[in-house]
Design a protein around this nucleic acid. Structure first.
Lengths: 131, 131
DNA sequence: TGTAATGATACCATATTTGTATCATTTGTC
DNA sequence: GACAAATGATACAAATATGGTATCATTACA
């Protein structure tokens, strides 16, 4: 059961590193060196974060990445949504079918309650909290 | 993000059906008919539940399954453990590595807190509650 | 003894996750 | 301007997990 996947995890690591060196533009090479994350995979992740306006990139010699927004505005929940899709803990099993009975509806309700709590928590964890 | 996988879901459905007909021995055929679950897959699931002493089986003509324990002693968390492995929401990403910094430890602690809540909730949902 | 049931087990298909490879584009430096 | 160092875009591939099949053995009732 994976709440946080590898790419989200890598994103957190990269972002915390970048946040901890906020005066400097950080290249992929430096991140690979520091975090030991497979280079092409990390590049893909950073490119996504750039597109999502969480990082901004500088091309060319001496280029690399900086935070596009302050760490208190970046939440774990955001990163999870970016890399793992919508925050639905219970990726609904009942989707393509007629819900086959009240009993499972009760279960669904209970799972939904749990889900609400989890999402609320995830939305409260900012990058700043982790620094 | 899937909290409950298909096999756990099918197990819940089968068990609720069996629980709702507790005087009768329920065959795979009847369950397939009632629940529209692929037969060989359902069989596998029922066999596992039998091994785990949640169902008891009767072989031969007129055979099938009955609950081995009362519905108030069967919890969603149990079924999830059977079909999805240990209840670790955060199937630890830090496992095979040296934890690379305090920041991620903080994240881990926060996730652990969420996890404790979720597991506690799941352990409180019995089959009886769903009937 | 035949048949209707489950037990055990090996296999297969598909989707997701994780990671790779390659070429195009931009930009600083000589 | 040419070169080199960086990211952008994108297609591909390996590994794993999930969902499902197939088959033969075993049991037990009629």
């Amino acid at each position: 059961m994976k709440l946080i996947t590898r790419d989200t995890d890598y994103a957190v690591r990269a972002l915390t590193y970048i946040a901890n060196h906020k005066d400097k533009t950080i290249s992929v090479s430096e991140l690979v060196e520091a975090l030991r994350i497979p280079r092409p995979f990390l590049r893909k992740i950073l490119q996504i974060l750039n597109k999502k306006r969480i990082l901004k990139s500088l091309k060319g010699q001496g280029g690399g990445f900086n935070l596009a927004i302050t760490p208190d505005k970046i939440f774990i929940a955001d990163l999870m949504e970016i890399f793992q899709g919508p925050l639905k803990i219970n990726e609904c099993i009942f989707k393509k079918r007629i819900c086959p009975g009240r009993n499972l509806c009760i279960l669904k309700m209970k799972i939904d309650t749990i889900e609400d709590y989890v999402i609320k928590q995830l939305r409260s964890i900012s990058l700043e909290v982790l620094l």
